[in-house]
Every structure is written in structure tokens, then in C-alpha cells.
Computed example of a mutant assay.
Amino acid sequence: MTAAAQGETPDILLDVQGLTKHFGTPNGFGRTPQVVRAVDGVSFTLRRGETLGLVGESGCGKSTTARLLLRLEEPTAGTISFDGQDVLSQSPRQMRQMRRRMQIVFQDPLASLDPRMSVAETLTEVFAIHKIGSGRERRDKVAALLEKVGLRPDYAARFPHEMSGGQRQRVGIARALALSPDLIIADEPVSALDVSIQAQIINLFQDLQAELALSYIFVSHDLSVVEHISDRVAVMYLGQVVELGPTETLYENPLHPYTAALLSAVPNFSRTRRRERLLLKGDLPSPVSPPSGCRFHPRCPRAEAICSAVKPEWRSVQPDHSVACHFPLGAGTASRS
């Protein structure tokens, strides 16, 4: 368990406030252009050495949020501060330097690796772009990276199609580690892998964090995986964070009905906690025209008239545990913040 999970007060490495990304839809065949509110006012902080899990249904904006943090997509609004620096004010040249400290591991290792490049070429390219080391120094660094992620040196000569999914993902992790980053954003890094391989990769992430003092944002729809690796969890619904809190507290006592429904859908989790299965009615609304008030109200079993008319305020219900809900589960008296 990291220092963050042991009750210490580490520094804030990443501070995200009001992060927003709206995409315009094409105007064709007589259709009126519309706005897709993919990410709509997301705020959170990440502490040094901490893992923050980002969870929610497909289409909730998790992966878009991850890409916005690295400016792989440009935000529509909001602020991103990394180690005290304004990420959005950086020039392309400055951003390249900043990305040495902020790296990403993608969901599909086969799609994220160039099939025409060997492992050695893939990893050496990182050093070449940033003008690090000579030829021999780069080869030594490649060998060290492969060893760090649990691959033999001879894997340097292999191509992506010659490796298994888990081995390819280890190469993706090695590429993310090449520049000694402080932050790694892992976007569904184990969802394309077999269950047994998932456990190996998760253990690798944890071992690397302990060894290198890394901070993670771990994006996943698999709540069992997120529970195992995360110190805190942020739950997203339709482009917004609806609940944020320490992993153990959030899993044992979810405050938002949406969080409770997600947790009740996990078979092993439901059996262990003996939690009643909560079935959500209806489909996920369109981000083109999200519901008024609380976006979850059309599917919420606790919804009342106020939920469709008034957007719920972000409130702190327990220490370090906050929610955006008019009627939090088991909250008692909530203090607004």
C-alpha cells in the first residue's frame, strides 16, 4: 500500500479543475450540427505516489479524460496543473519536455505498437526523439527496461506479432518507463488480456510503483481490478465525476446510487458483501442531450422532483469522500463544500 493509503499527506502532483471536452458532430445530409459533451466539468487531484482509479460505463468519458490530461486531445475548458505547472499553457516544445514526466499505457498493446518495428527499435525511438544517449547506451537502456518489466533481453529482436498480449503490454509499459516519468496514465491496460495475465500485469504495475515512486491514473470499467490497485476511486457518469473517495470506503459504503449499482453488478463483490443486485432502468442517455438536473435521474431508483430540476452540488459526506447527489445513500447529514 502506498504512503497515500497509509494516512500521510503527500504533495499534490496533478490538479484538474473543470476539465471539459465538447466535440462537434458533422453537418451533413441536412442534419444540424450538435455538440457531444464527452467530458463536462471534471475535477480531481492526484497525490504523489498514489493510484487514482477512474471507473464508469463505456461512453462515460474516462478515456477522453485520460487523453486530455496529456493534451492528446485539446480541452474545451478547464485547467490542468502538473507539479505546479500549467499544462495547457505549454508550447508544443515545452509540452514535449513535460511529457517526459507524464506517460500513457494504452488499452490495446497490438494497436499501440508499430508492427514494422522490433521491440528494440520501438524503445530506442523514445531515446532518439529526446536525444538521450549514444547507440550503445540506448541498447543498454533497452536491455534494462526489458528486465524491469520481466522480459528477457532476447525479446529486443522480436516484433509485436511474435509476442503474446501480455508480453506486448509489458513492452508498452517499458516504453512508458523509458523516460523515468512521475505519472503514468493507464487507459484500460488489462481489459484486452486473459484473466491470469491481467493479474501479472497488475502486480507489475504495483511493483514498479513501489520501486520507482510512480503515480498512476488507472482507467478501467473492471471494478475488481480497480479495487485491487487503487488508493482512491473516482466514478464517472455521462462526462462528470459523481463520487470520489478512498477505495475501501467507497466500495464498502457507496454514496451515489450509480456507484452502488455498478458494485452490485460485480458477481464476486456482490457475494462477498451480500449486497442486493440493483438494476438500472433505461439506457445511458446521449451526451449530445444530457438530462437536466442530475444526469442520472432518469435511471435512478431514488430520484425525486428536485433531481430533474436542480443539478446536485458536490458535497463532502465523510472524510475525503465526496458525492454529487441530492439523496446520498446512508449519508445522514451532509456538509456542503
Rank of each mutant, 00 (worst) to 15 (best):
T249R: 15
E252G: 12
N268T: 05
Y251H: 10
L255E: 03
K281M: 11
T272D: 06
R273G: 02
L262P: 02
N253Y: 04
S270P: 04
L262V: 02
P267L: 08
L279I: 13
R277M: 11
L280Q: 05
V266Y: 01
Y258S: 03
R274N: 13
K281L: 11
A261P: 08
R274G: 05
H256T: 04
A261L: 05
Y251V: 00
R271P: 03
K281P: 09
R277F: 13
A261V: 04
P267G: 08
R274M: 08
L263A: 04
L279K: 08
L262R: 02
R273T: 12
H256E: 04
R274Q: 12
R273D: 07
P254V: 01
R271Y: 04
L250M: 10
N253L: 15
R275T: 03
H256L: 04
R273P: 00
E252A: 15
A260S: 12
L255D: 03
T259F: 12
L279E: 13
L255P: 01
L280S: 08
G282D: 03
N268A: 09
E248F: 13
E248C: 12
R271I: 13
L255K: 12
L262H: 01
N253H: 14
A260K: 03
L280K: 00
R273V: 09
L262W: 08
P257K: 09
R275G: 07
E276F: 00
L279W: 02
L278Y: 11
L263E: 03
R271Q: 13
A260T: 00
E276L: 00
K281R: 14
R274K: 14
G282K: 06
R274A: 09
R274E: 10
A260R: 09
N268E: 06
R275C: 07
E252Y: 12
F269M: 10
V266P: 07
L263V: 08
A260H: 02
R271V: 14
E276H: 06
S264I: 12
H256I: 01
R277L: 15
L250V: 03
F269L: 15
L250K: 05
P267R: 05
P257D: 09
R275H: 07
L278V: 15
T272G: 00
H256C: 05
R275K: 10
G282F: 01
K281H: 12
A265S: 14
S270F: 00
Y251E: 03
Y251F: 15
L279C: 01
Y251T: 00
E276R: 07
S264F: 13
E248T: 14
A260C: 02
R275E: 10
N253W: 06
E276I: 02
P267T: 00
E252R: 15
